[in-house]
Design a binder for these strands. Sequence first.
DNA 1: CTGAAAGCGCTTACAG
DNA 2: CTGAAAGCGCTTACAG
Lengths: 338, 338
Amino acid sequence: MVTMRDVADRAGVSIATVSFVVNGTKPVAADTRTRIEQAMADLGFRRNAVARALASRRTHILAMAYPALDHDLSSSALEFFTSAAATAARLDHHLVLWPVSNDAAELKELIGEGLVDGVLLMEVQLDDPRVAVLEAARMPFALIGRTADPTPYVHVDIDFDATIREAVAHLHELGHRRLVLVSGDRSDPGMIDYGPYVRSEAAFQATAEAYGLEPTILRSGTTAAAGRELAGRLAHDHPDVTAVMIMREYASLGLVSELRRTGRDIPGDISVLPLVASRELPSLSDPALTIMRSPGPELGRLGVESLITLVAGGSVPPPQLIPCRLEIASSTAPPPES
Amino acid sequence: MVTMRDVADRAGVSIATVSFVVNGTKPVAADTRTRIEQAMADLGFRRNAVARALASRRTHILAMAYPALDHDLSSSALEFFTSAAATAARLDHHLVLWPVSNDAAELKELIGEGLVDGVLLMEVQLDDPRVAVLEAARMPFALIGRTADPTPYVHVDIDFDATIREAVAHLHELGHRRLVLVSGDRSDPGMIDYGPYVRSEAAFQATAEAYGLEPTILRSGTTAAAGRELAGRLAHDHPDVTAVMIMREYASLGLVSELRRTGRDIPGDISVLPLVASRELPSLSDPALTIMRSPGPELGRLGVESLITLVAGGSVPPPQLIPCRLEIASSTAPPPES
DNA sequence: CTGAAAGCGCTTACAG
DNA sequence: CTGAAAGCGCTTACAG
């Protein structure tokens, strides 16, 4: 391994001066700098990340804490991870994966090791015990999602208000007046307080009121089978509904396939609009789905950027709320003539 | 931060002795040990991972190098990551994400930082330039996948031979005699040499020969749309085929939906068997798909275990080839009477 | 603009 | 069984 000592010797300077040019920490005379840079190139020097971390008290490592397999994160999560890791790399950082459960003790242990400068907290609950652990440890963190009152914390999240507004506007423009929002099943203990459901439902109530519509809300599990079951409930309990906004992407596949199987035309008889969908979803269904696409990559990037800003001790970065964007395909159209 | 110095002072010993009990490195008298453990508990000591790493020359950090979004890794990849990270944690390690391209220079830079003890290389090509980089840097690594001749390297991979054998056996037992294997499109430059395709095709040739069947091989892109297009080719060019084994899971969804749209009953007229599928796939389709399920979690675990063994300098862990397992649902059945 | 030196918090021969 | 001390490869006041 080539160390600063080696570089310093070859350039005829002290290791402090080498450090100054490597980090740009202090001005160095042009010719000295040139000699050092030459020596580094000759020897193939790379600054050791561990020694740097110990001396500077900054590891430049960030942790991504996510509850392993608690829900179907799958494809959005991978987009998110990749974007976050790439952003971290661009800003001279690394990203470690902490697939910790929502219980706080495990997180506390990991923090104690002193390996990371900050934590990105995914799948935040409205009342999240992990936040207290992070605060007590004075560990910088950013929320991906929001607690009930996220004001005191650095956070980035989907803008559910704007997402619902755009979705409703799209359907309303097409002529739909009987819309339903399918939110997630909250019977699961961990899900009672799940922010995306709570906020979307509230946003739908408000938006529907603004349009003078009745805000019908249904719940569904996450699987395609749950989506199929939903199709039955819809036909039986809400036969007049002409458009469905649905938050679970796998369930939307089951919903569409069961609706078609039972003779409903999509989008002729009923429009289907998945709300927080990943890139792959549209093409997985027939007809291709119009979606509100999840801003996974943007959230990953912004989460890391915000966290690094916070760690650097600059100003506290403002919250970032990013709406899903409408991507039109073939599952929404004007309602049938009535 | 509580350091070993603090613990040593409170227990009335030297920091060396504290280190011995923390790591179990050397025998320590029972009462001394008790005093130290009490002091650690009182102070809430946690050994600093960075200092440990610098002194011991082992960071206990592993890197997961994967080409970001080169293909559709999505859901299997997340299972893999999570399993790998959890295994790492269980063995006192961390996992960092390196979404590096397949080009070797970037990997070399990262290795140079000295942050990681070893690298897990995903999406290995038959002739992979990254392997040379790793070898030159004397960086321990394990392949997830295989180079053309993986013998010299620690590797874990899907056992394509056994997977194809079980898939063919399943279909043959049902009575199918006209099978087709749908492999991936290799027109993409990076894909010409893609191991999973190459090995599956070879395995199918061999297995078909053993059964006295004609080994028809088609290629398809990864998307659902590509799967739909495939349905047309199948009907037109291979009308007598009664069973399709297919390697791309999204394409299998398009294939099934297009077959049904054009009036083919599944599994009545034709059986469909996705070969390296993730857990979610079966329920995403109607009928639910019988699959050969990808051993993502097992590969993640074995990859990390093998790599840690290698890093620890023990014996070189043997290759691990894990077959996909047959999970029967509703897309395979006896062929129609002819 | 540059250097000598302390120090980050551990591990690990070495000595006793 | 335990301790004193060197050392891992950097950063960072401090002095000049």
